[in-house]
């Protein structure tokens, strides 16, 4: 387990997440792509903290903040899905052409 192998795993997760976020039509699947990106980001952050940060606590703090961002993203995403479904009766990104109802 070296920093290089950790970062390559993180890069793979970010790559797959980007693919998902750009290709999926459903909001919830799109959010899964975003989550996967953040998964890779957290892995890279912890990797840097453990291997190059000399135990600086800010490295762990960054990961906590990413977790908070994930929670916010999930909550806002689900609220958006519910709101769009009420307005358009669909959960596809294509159905959202504007923010009017």
């Amino acid at each position: 387990m070296s920093l290089i192998s950790l970062l390559i795993v993180a890069a793979a997760l970010i790559g797959i997440g980007l693919y998902g976020a750009f290709s999926q039509q459903s909001f919830v699947m799109l959010m899964m792509g975003l989550e996967l990106i953040l998964n890779g980001v957290m892995l890279a952050a912890v990797g840097f903290w453990a291997m190059t940060g000399a135990g600086a606590p800010e490295g762990q703090l960054l990961t906590i903040i990413v977790m908070a961002v994930m929670a916010i993203e999930m909550a806002m995403g689900f609220a958006l899905v519910v709101a769009v479904y009420r307005g358009k009766q669909a959960d596809m990104t294509e159905s959202l052409s504007g923010f009017k109802h």
Binding site: L3, I4, L7, I8, A10, A11, A12, I14, G15, I16, G17, L18, Y19, G20, A21, F22, S23, Q24, Q25, S26, M29, F48, M51, T52, M92, T93, E94
Partner: peptide, 30 residues
């Protein structure tokens, strides 16, 4: 259920290659 799948795949692979390039060629202190 996908759209622009080829583009998305390209973006994903490009991001992976770029980031692992940074990982392999970057100079990080130990």
């Amino acid at each position: 259920m996908v759209h622009q799948e080829k583009v998305a795949m390209g973006i994903g692979i490009a991001a992976f290659v770029a980031l692992s390039g940074v990982a392999v060629f970057g100079d990080f202190p130990s």
